[in-house]
Amino acid sequence: MTILVTGGAGYIGSHTCVELLQAGHDVVIVDTFDNSHPEALNRIAEIAGRAPASETGDIRDRAFLEDVLRRHGCTSVIHFAGLKAVGESGEKPLLYYDYNVVGTLRLLQAMQAVGVRKLVFSSSATVYGEPQRLPLEEDHPLSATNPYGRTKLVIEEMLRDLHNSDPSWHIAILRYFNPVGAHESGLIGEDPKGIPNNLMPIIAQVASGRREKLNVWGNDYPTPDGTGIRDYIHVVDLAKGHLKALDRLDEPQCFAVNLGTGQGYSVRDVIKAFEHVSNRKIDHEMAPRRPGDVAVCYSDPSHAKDLLDWSATKGLREMCQDMWNWQVKNPNGYE
């Protein structure tokens, strides 16, 4: 099977490409490299023992996508490409709707034009908005507290409308919780441009001395230690979930499923775990809450177990260990 992976040089995309190649699939990566690095392609090949094909281009370019799909004989698509910084989405909402929503629309039009109707979509737990009940199950009401989350929600609705209008589509919507960690080899990992938006890369950079301190956004949440609680999932577990979803799409359908561990950890929990594995002090200070952040968010992953025969296997310690290994081996990311 030849699989087009949009955003395949990015953090989650690169780990998924490794799993696909090791499972015997052929992979074609489409990436602009605006928020990723071409060196990731070499590292993917080194780990997997063979290289993915690669095309540089924008998912908003429908003609380009049609050409890639036809030329490589792609049979399915895993769609990661998009913008993902919650704070930035509030400052530049039109940019996010353009990249995420319009980009996905152009991809779907290109797939329809060439007769490729199998898609795994990278969604997010942000589509649940402020949790009304916990743990979060797939039938929880959908909403969003920021423009990034709303772009994911619009895309989900677009995919459901598409399948309702044409039931020949095979669509898996994967709602990620908080991906962290890195490949155990230390060859690929999260390499954010500029100041990281996510907790773990900042902690790793503070531990390595690349960054002075961590700002903890809010210590007055209604949680045991006052800091926000999230469901952190190892990126390799997450990548394997995409292969399980692809295997499940053997017949036309459209389903949404959580990919998480079902275990919530606070910001302080993560700091302590990282200090333990790195043997470094993580300097941090408290800062006001960020708009759009929720106090507690963790999944009920049982539907993924039932539907995909998938569950997370790696705990917080392994997440921190693999992240620290990546940081030590790549102090400046892929540069």
Rank of each mutant, 00 (worst) to 15 (best):
M1D: 09
I3V: 15
I3D: 06
L4E: 03
L4R: 04
T6R: 02
V18L: 07
A23Y: 09
H25R: 07
V27W: 07
I29H: 01
P38Y: 13
N42T: 14
I44C: 08
A45H: 11
G49N: 12
P52Q: 15
R60H: 05
R62D: 09
L65Y: 04
C74F: 14
T75I: 01
F80I: 06
G82C: 12
S89F: 08
G103W: 00
T104Q: 06
L107T: 07
Q109K: 14
A113E: 07
V114N: 02
V120A: 07
V120P: 07
S122F: 09
G129C: 11
E130M: 12
E130R: 10
P131L: 03
Q132T: 13
E138G: 00
D139T: 14
H140P: 01
A144S: 15
A144V: 08
N146K: 01
P147V: 04
Y148L: 04
Y148V: 02
Y148C: 02
R150H: 13
T151G: 01
K152M: 05
L153N: 02
V154M: 10
D161M: 12
S165T: 11
S168I: 05
W169P: 00
W169L: 07
H170I: 07
A182N: 05
I188K: 12
D191Q: 08
I195W: 14
N197Y: 14
L199D: 02
I202M: 13
V206D: 10
A207S: 10
E212L: 13
E212N: 12
W217I: 00
G218D: 10
G218V: 09
N219R: 09
G226Q: 05
G228V: 02
I229Q: 08
L238T: 11
L238Q: 08
H242F: 14
K244L: 11
L246Y: 14
R248N: 08
P252C: 10
Q253L: 11
C254H: 11
L259N: 00
G262C: 05
S266Y: 04
D269L: 09
S278M: 00
N279R: 14
D283E: 04
H284E: 04
E285N: 06
E285G: 04
M286T: 14
G292C: 07
Y298M: 09
D300K: 10
P301M: 09
H303S: 05
D306N: 10
G315F: 03
E318M: 02
E318F: 00
M323D: 02
W324D: 02
